[in-house]
């Protein structure tokens, strides 16, 4: 625990190092996450991410080759439901939450794949 905190203290001095951000390819990740940011927000995000990455990067250096990943703590398996219809929602109530709708349909701007759009 102590090591962890000491390392973080010294990393703030390395903030100026842009290496971590280049490696992360921040622009690509932000695009993948569909977040449109103002230039200020982008800059703030960049500096925040460096700090956070420095914390979590330490984990990469540790040799955990012989350890099995833990996906779920409770060890459950075969959790099924029977194939039966259940209660429905009524579209009339639900559509009130929709930013835009036409009758029973949700409505969005026309889906046109453009050059810069990420594919599905």
């Amino acid at each position: 625990m102590a090591n962890q905190i000491n390392i973080i203290m010294s990393s703030t001095e390395n903030q100026k190092k842009k290496l971590a951000v280049d490696q992360i390819d921040l622009k690509k990740t932000v695009k993948l996450a569909y977040l449109s940011l103002t230039p200020t927000e982008s800059e703030q995000l960049e500096s925040d991410i460096i700090k956070i990455l420095n914390t979590i990067d330490k984990l990469r250096a540790i040799d955990l080759a012989t350890v099995e990943p833990l996906y779920q703590v409770n060890g459950f398996f075969n959790r099924f439901r029977e194939d039966q219809k259940g209660d429905h929602l009524q579209i009339q109530t639900v559509i009130e939450n929709a930013p835009d709708a036409l009758g029973r349909f949700f409505r969005v701007p026309l889906v046109v794949e453009k050059e810069g759009d990420l594919e599905q």
């Binding site: 695009k31 996450a33 569909y34 977040l35 449109s36 940011l37 927000e41 703030q44 995000l45 925040d48 969005v108 701007p109 026309l110 889906v111 046109v112 453009k114 759009d117 990420l118």
Partner: peptide, 16 residues
Amino acid sequence: SLFEMYAKSRGEGFGR
């Protein structure tokens, strides 16, 4: 485009 709508909605809707 629709995808720009996504990105703007999320960019504006989510905090720092």
